[in-house]
Design a binder for these strands. Structure first.
Lengths: 226, 226
DNA sequence: CGCGTCTTTGATGCAAGTCAATCGCCGTGG
DNA sequence: CCACGGCGATTGACTTGCATCAAAGACGCG
């Protein structure tokens, strides 16, 4: 891990991030004033569940997995975060402890915003408070979605829903590129990699073609019925 | 369902609720000024996923299940809420749509707080914004906990953890009363009732005795090891 | 071209859901 | 007071979905 300065590209991503993107430009510029940046290699651990942290993290590039570990060492993903996404935001309000561990799933660049300063801003500036509230609402909804998927759907159904969520509702046929390795997708969906593979091959008969990271949907409606 | 006025007992519960309890007394008194109250019988639906709602709900007495339904009609619980707990708080910030359905799991009394007024307060009063932020942080953590439990632990382990979470860490032996029917507990843990039953009987050999709603733990440490 | 890594496929085992039958508890009414 | 009926809880038998282990196949990169 190496610490460095903010490039102008980094600034652009920060300003469009799921948190700062909700703020008026002047405010967000002020917030990133003292941001720090660090680079991490694949598999670097950013923090562990229970660690004391007082920062909010933003992915500038790369991929971060948020997970909990069971006592046998297995890791269950709670979220997979891409450029522009924010994480660990509740730690700064909740006893300054990480509620999960975080690890780079590929080489990544991460920005950190000081927790104390953000808390001050949240009281003095209603826009900042509002942005936090909306961010947290989205976070809750994300996790609720995951939980509901886990409890209601089988592996092929979860995969179908994931594909559909990456698919514009207009067109009947469509194709897109997975934003990460199948390995990581499996984790995000709460599946073993083998189960993901089998799910894909079951979906082939509903018109889903997988080649490498490219996913092709021949008939959106066949998938929805699934 | 019947609408009625706030009793003084209701007020006391509201003021200690997970949301209003974080506010200075003068503020929280103002917030509940225009609260409305309604009673519901067991199995009454309060709202369905996707319904337009612009209120925050507080359980005054009884029990409410928050759930999503799969397309086969099965219901997966996202939370089970008791007196003093707040729900649907993110709807008022997130497009005024319920992200889940809610149903009384037993006869219940529910208070409603006007969404528009709360949003106004959240911008004008930093304390209110802060209370929302903390509430949402807790909500996220709750759901994350559930997801992690589902993904990392077997049924008996989840039940053991549930028991431990109702158990003071000091004493080695302990007993308590389930706050609701086993049926409901099963739903909350993401299990079929039969699976919960089997889990309990597996835990008997670790010193857990179940009689009706009473749970008795003979040796806390045996459970922790499980 | 060859090697390592990611992915797929196959075989097997276990956890939990489902269906069905029984049990226990409690309240009702004879 | 006891018999009955109803409902929640338990138990058993079976099925299913997924994890796991092992091996082979595909892909990318040096």
């Amino acid at each position: 891990m190496k610490t460095l300065r903010l490039t102008s590209n980094d600034r652009a991503i920060l300003l469009k991030s799921s948190f700062l993107g909700r703020l008026p430009r002047s405010t967000s510029e002020a917030v990133i004033e003292d941001a720090t940046v660090s680079t991490h290699e694949e598999d670097d651990v950013l923090f562990r569940q229970g660690d004391g942290i007082d920062e909010v993290f933003v992915v500038l590039s790369g991929l971060v997995r948020l997970y909990r570990v069971g006592k046998d060492g297995r890791e269950a993903d709670l979220a997979v975060l891409q450029a522009g996404e924010v994480f660990a935001e509740s730690a700064i309000f909740l006893g300054h402890h990480a509620t999960a561990s975080a690890r780079a799933a590929e080489a990544s660049i991460i920005a950190r915003l000081d927790g104390r300063r953000l808390r001050q801003l949240a009281v003095s500036n209603p826009d900042v408070a509002q942005a936090f509230i909306e961010l947290l609402c989205h976070r809750s909804k994300m996790v609720e979605d995951l939980l509901a998927q886990d409890r209601l759907h089988t592996a092929p159904e979860r995969v179908a829903n994931y594909i559909l969520s990456n698919c514009p509702s207009g067109s009947t046929s469509f194709s897109f590129r997975l934003p990460f390795q199948k390995n990581v997708l499996a984790g995000k969906l709460g599946l073993a990699p083998e189960a993901l593979s089998r799910a894909f091959s079951k979906l082939r008969q509903s018109g889903v073609v997988v080649r490498g990271r490219m996913i092709e949907i021949r008939d959106r409606h066949a998938l929805e019925r699934f």
